[in-house]
């Protein structure tokens, strides 16, 4: 094989370094562009937008810090939208690692941005319960059998907004933000599908393709990964002008800069790898 046709073999550490650099630089110099919402994201947004004020939303945050970078922006976007629509928000999690994630969402969004929102009247956290699909099954039939208190230890019948709740049918919509098992799939299988309650979901990019078969009959729509979260934020900006103010930090939009450069680097690596093989093959053929 002629030397001029040979491409250098990249060692692992070089690839690692390249990825680190292409992610770090846009974080420091903040590149971001306009997002164009996809039809799927728009559909979820329109559904939430169409719900009247006072609608009861079950916001299930089923993930851990491992998926926080992808899902927390999504949870915040859902939360902002629900609060803008003046809905009653019920937080819940099937993950033991979920309660701090709920607390963070409340402290980052509801407390500073919606000071009028009051715990127990406008939002409540039911906290975590173990049991995975069994927990969803009980919520579908008799929520108070499982939840005797809210996530903060107050009796569930002493809270204004949880008093009338019986089971999953008491909610107008379920918004599930999940990173795997238990998550959206279990909410559909044991909760919303048998009960006939609408559900829309946000999930990690890894999970998203696996849940597409439920769309559109069993799942209103789904947000897959950070890109969909950024698109949801773009719709929030389009609908509510205040989010164009930089003081409302839209996390997913900010992260799309480093995300894009990393994608481009990986595409470059794939092309380079294929070129190396092609040239090697051509060289072998010539010899």
């Amino acid at each position: 094989m002629p030397a001029r046709l040979r491409l250098p073999e990249l060692n692992r550490q070089f690839v690692f370094g390249l990825i680190a650099v292409v992610v770090c630089i846009p974080i420091l110099w903040k590149f971001s562009f306009r997002e164009y919402p996809s039809p799927m994201v728009r559909k979820v947004f329109d559904k939430v937008q169409s719900l009247p004020a006072g609608s009861k939303v079950l916001l299930a945050l089923d993930y851990d810090p491992g998926a926080e970078a992808e899902l927390q922006p999504m949870a915040r976007a859902f939360l902002r939208h629900c609060a803008e629509r003046k809905m009653k928000i019920y937080f819940m999690t099937l993950w033991a690692t979920g309660p701090p994630v709920i607390t963070r969402a409340i402290e980052d969004v509801l407390v500073p941005e919606f000071p009028g929102y009051r715990y127990g009247r406008d939002y409540v956290t039911l906290g975590f319960k173990p049991g995975n699909e069994a927990a969803v099954a009980i919520i579908a039939s008799d929520l108070k059998k499982l939840f005797t208190t809210d996530g903060r230890g107050t009796n569930i019948n002493d809270i204004e907004m949880t008093r009338p709740i019986r089971n999953i049918r008491s909610f107008d919509i379920v918004l599930s933000v999940s990173a795997g098992f238990p998550g959206t799939k279990e909410w559909i299988q044991y909760g919303t599908d048998p009960a006939g309650i609408p559900i829309a979901a946000g999930m990690t990019a890894v999970q998203a393709p696996l849940n597409y078969p439920y769309y559109p009959r069993q799942l209103l729509g789904l947000l897959g990964g950070i890109k969909a979260a950024a698109e949801y934020e773009a719709l929030l900006k389009e609908t509510y002008q205040k989010y164009n103010d930089p003081k409302y930090h839209l996390e997913a939009t900010a992260r799309m800069g480093p995300q894009t450069w990393a994608h481009l680097a990986i595409i470059g690596l794939i092309i380079l790898g294929n070129l190396t093989t092609l040239l090697a093959r051509a060289g072998r053929g010539r010899n």
Binding site: A69, E70, A205, V206, P209, I226
Partner: peptide
């Protein structure tokens, strides 16, 4: 699935960095 997995993993790396 691969494309989405790359997207997911990169998002987590961005968060950490």
């Amino acid at each position: 699935g691969f494309g989405y997995t790359v997207m997911g993993r990169v998002a987590l790396l961005v968060g950490r960095l």
